[in-house]
Design a protein around this nucleic acid. Structure first.
Lengths: 173, 173
DNA sequence: CGATGCATGTAACGCGTTACATGATTAC
DNA sequence: GTAATCATGTAACGCGTTACATGCATCG
C-alpha cells in the first residue's frame, strides 16, 4: 500500500515519468523513508492509471510517458495522510543484531557496538554537511517536509550514538 | 535471511518449540526488532533442521517438538553477528507520511505531527514504566541485550518527541 | 462436556528484489 | 561509431501476511 502513496505524493508535487520517479526515490525518499526499483514502479503506475488515480499527461520521445495525479488520486492521498495509521511493525536487522548480541563474548559485542556507532557517526557527518545550507522552509514560505524529515533521521542517528556511550558503560560497570 | 538468525539467536539461549518461539517473538523481539507469525516460523524451522543448523531435541505431547541449536548452527549465528552488514534500506511508513505531508494544508500537517507525538509519548511512558525495574546487567553478570536495545528504542522515540517541538516551531516561524 | 489454550501445519496472495530483455537518443 | 544515459517493461524467486485447517490437553 505504501508504494502507491509514495508515488501519488511525488506526483502531487509535479507530473513525472516512471523514470523520473525512480530517480526521485533514489535521491530523496530512499535515505529515510522508502525505497523502490523501477521494476516495481512501472507496474504500479500502470495499476494506478487503470484505477483512475493518475493519468498520462504527455507522451514524449523513447516511449516516455509523463503521468499526472488526478482529482480522485489527490483525494485518496489526502485521506491516507490524515487517517491515523496503526502502529508499524518494527523490522530492523540492526536492532535484531543488538538483541542477539548476547551470543557473542562481551569483548566482541563491545567491538560490534563501537563499529555500529562509527558508521552512524560518519553518516551523520556526511548528511549534516550535505544539509548544511538547506532551509526547512522554502523560499515560497512552504515547508520542505523532506528537510524536516531528514532532521528527524539525523536526530535518531544521534540518539544511537549517545546510547552507545551509555551501553558500553553498562557493559564495563 | 533475518528470520533464520532470529530463530538461531533465540535457540542459542535455550531449546524451544515453534510455539514457544512464536510467543517469544510476540513478547520481546516484536516491539523493537523483528516480527514473525507461526505460519512463517514452522516452515523455517523445518528448513533449518534439514540444513543441520538445529535439531529436534525432544518430542512431547500434542506433537510438540523442542528444537536445539547445533554446533554448526551456533557457528553460523556467530558469523552473522560479527560480519558487518551493508546499510539497511529504510522502509518506514511513518517517515513516508512525514515526507509527503506537504500535500496537506499547513494547519492540518501540524495537527498530524502533534498526533504522532502524542502517540510516541504515551508509548514511551508505558514502556518506561514496564522497564523501570529491569537491570541491563543480569544477576549472573551477563548483559541483557534485550534491555539495552529497549533503551535505544526509547531514546529514538524521545528524539521524535523532541524533534516535533522543533519542527512545529519551524512551521510557525 | 465445553471453553480455553497448546501445538502444528498448509494455501493464496501481495510486496519487494534480482535478473533478464529491449531499444532510442545524445554526447564525444 | 560507440559509450553513456534515457526509458520501459517482464519473469522468477523469496519473504511476509492472512486465512484456512486440524487436533490434543487441561481446567472448571
Amino acid at each position: 500500500m505504501s508504494l502507491k502513496y509514495a508515488l501519488l505524493g511525488l506526483l502531487d508535487n509535479h507530473p513525472a515519468s516512471g523514470y523520473e520517479l525512480t530517480q526521485e526515490f533514489a535521491a530523496s525518499l530512499e535515505r529515510w523513508a522508502w525505497h523502490a526499483k523501477h521494476s516495481q514502479i512501472y507496474p504500479e503506475l500502470a495499476k494506478l492509471e487503470k484505477d483512475g488515480l493518475i493519468e498520462v499527461a504527455e507522451e514524449g520521445a523513447r516511449g516516455r510517458k509523463t503521468y499526472a495525479i488526478t482529482r480522485v488520486g489527490r483525494e485518496d492521498l489526502r485521506q491516507w495522510l490524515v487517517q491515523p495509521s496503526k502502529r508499524e511493525r518494527m523490522r530492523s536487522e540492526f536492532m535484531l543484531r543488538l538483541f542477539l548480541m548476547g551470543s557473542l563474548p562481551k569483548a566482541q559485542a563491545r567491538k560490534m557496538i563501537e563499529r555500529m556507532v562509527a558508521g552512524a557517526q560518519s553518516e551523520i557527518d556526511a548528511v549534516r554537511e550535505a544539509m548544511a545550507d538547506e532551509d526547512p522552509i522554502g523560499p515560497d514560505g512552504r515547508p520542505e517536509f523532506g528537510i524536516l524529515a531528514g532532521e528527524l533521521g539525523l536526530r535518531q542517528y544521534q540518539a544511537l550514538v549517545d546510547w552507545a556511550d551509555w551501553a558500553i558503560e553498562q557493559l564495563e560497570g
